[in-house]
Design a protein around this nucleic acid. Sequence first.
DNA 1: TTCCAGGCAATAC
DNA 2: GTATTGCATGGA
Length: 236
Amino acid sequence: MRDIPLSGMGADAGAVLEYYGALLKRYGPQGWWPILDLHHARKGVNPTKSGSINGYHPGDFSYPRSEAQRFEICIGAILTQNTAWPNVEKALLNLKQLDCLDSGRLLALSEEILKGAIRPAGYFNQKARKLKVFAEFYASLKGRAPSRGELLGLWGVGPETADSILLYAFRVPVFVVDAYTRRIFSGMGWFEKDAEYESIRSFFESSLDGDYKLFQEYHALIVEKGKRMRAEVVKK
DNA sequence: TTCCAGGCAATAC
DNA sequence: GTATTGCATGGA
């Protein structure tokens, strides 16, 4: 299996930044990661955004603004594994209703209550276990940021989830690779469909000279593009 | 009705 | 190391 994204196939650092600019111009700032409660007016929400438009904050990179929001992002990253965001939103709202968007309170929940709450997000048996494992780890951090290795060592946290948590909950400039990233860029001939996660990640990270804001926006734009591509296919 | 979403772990070779 | 399979809800 090929594991190096090959400059020979048309991708270089300039192209990476250029494509980011094109996506931003076309779709506008995305305002990821979505947060349940934005305590300010959602000025500038892009009304043409596909899927749920709740909780986005275009052009505002100040989230998370609290420990509770940081934990909420982490939980959302786990719940959205292979799952549509509107379903995740339902699960998060249920947890919020229980006042359990908090590592300690989530740990105190019974299995049955927890599974019931996250049921809309699918895979609720597995995800209940994943959330418990993560909540325990999160509590043990006592406010410090986790390393990528620590996250990957957790049962239920793979590379995409780890990188989403680092990027959106802890503002670490990492490039998140997801199914859309593979689809879009392999379609453009930048690398093979089955390229290794790590080789894609290192390719983008070494090509981009920017802070966490650039990485947050780039990933969000890729997802938006990917969703629209799918919508186009379905329409036909 | 079928298809599939902002993956991951377990298993089989 | 590579390929396959189970996990589950809700919207299109």
